[in-house]
Amino acid sequence: MRTVNLVSPDDVTDEAEARVAIVRACRHLAAAGLSPGSSGNVSVRVGARILATPTGSSLRSVTEDRLAATPSHAEGSPRPTKELPLHAAMYAAHPEARAVVHLHSPHATAVACLPPGEDGFAALPALTPYRVMRLGSVPLVPYAAPGTSALASAVAAAAAGHPVLLLANHGPVVAAASLDAAIDLAEELETAAQVGLLLHGSPAVPLDAAAVAALTPPGR
């Protein structure tokens, strides 16, 4: 028995456009090497629904018709990624967000395996202006197993005021007002992590406190 679909025509149009955008984003992230194997998941919020990549899928091969919608209006529809609770926690912490991207990108994941810095945040030194302006301070969320309520709870505790997070021993998750903006944040985080790792142990000169203060977004 099918559930009656009560969404408006505008919602249907928005959802169709969101499906196209998600698949395009997935292909971009896969081509950039930011989602190895079947890792990584992407979601977009359309009205009261969340469209997400399905469980067990790879970003390089996901298709519009196999994206999962929750709450679902049809029996037998694709099941969303097991990380949907993580995505929901990010949306709850950021009401303005319309997209969440979670990846296992190599450099950001490597930094997520390091102990936090002296400030308690992820070990991402303030080496460049864009590292500070775009990312702000990046919490390192304590480890919890992927797909668990414990992980979603840990994300919920850390996400307020922080749209960019690193999950300890796991990878990055970001939320933004659009899918393009979320991808930009994920790529900025990966670049900042790469630069930090390239210079790790070298006499690199970070931005001084005054420069960091001048660049830091309000509330971040």
Rank of each mutant, 00 (worst) to 15 (best):
L167N: 09
A159V: 02
I183K: 05
I22P: 01
P139L: 09
P146N: 12
L185E: 10
S38E: 12
L140Y: 14
R98V: 00
H170A: 05
S8H: 05
P116N: 09
A213C: 02
T109G: 10
L166F: 11
E188G: 01
C26S: 15
G219E: 10
H200L: 06
A126Q: 11
R134P: 00
E17Q: 13
R134V: 08
V111F: 10
A214N: 04
G196V: 02
V62E: 13
E187I: 07
S8R: 04
L166D: 09
V173F: 15
R60H: 14
G56P: 03
A168P: 00
Y130C: 03
D119V: 03
A177Y: 02
M133V: 06
T70Y: 14
A145C: 04
A18N: 06
T63D: 13
P129Y: 09
D65M: 06
S58F: 03
P80G: 12
D14P: 00
L185Q: 10
A182R: 02
G219C: 03
T55V: 07
V174Y: 12
L59G: 03
R45H: 12
D11F: 05
P116Q: 07
R2S: 12
R131T: 14
P54A: 14
G56N: 10
L59Y: 13
A181S: 11
V141E: 13
P206Y: 07
P80V: 05
A123Y: 13
T3A: 15
V111M: 08
A30Y: 11
A110L: 13
L127C: 07
P116V: 06
S35E: 10
A150S: 11
L6P: 00
L103F: 06
G196Q: 08
L29E: 09
E187H: 03
V212W: 03
P217T: 05
R24V: 04
A74P: 00
S57I: 01
A209V: 06
I50S: 11
E83T: 01
L197G: 07
P85H: 10
A210D: 11
V20F: 02
V195M: 11
G201W: 08
R98Q: 14
H73Y: 15
A156R: 14
T81P: 01
T148W: 04
G196L: 06
G40S: 07
A74M: 05
E17L: 14
A68K: 08
A150Q: 15
A144L: 04
A32P: 00
L140N: 13
P146I: 01
E83Y: 03
V4E: 12
P106K: 10
V174L: 04
S149F: 01
L114C: 10
K82I: 12
V132H: 03
V46C: 14
A209K: 04
T109N: 06
R45T: 02
L198T: 02
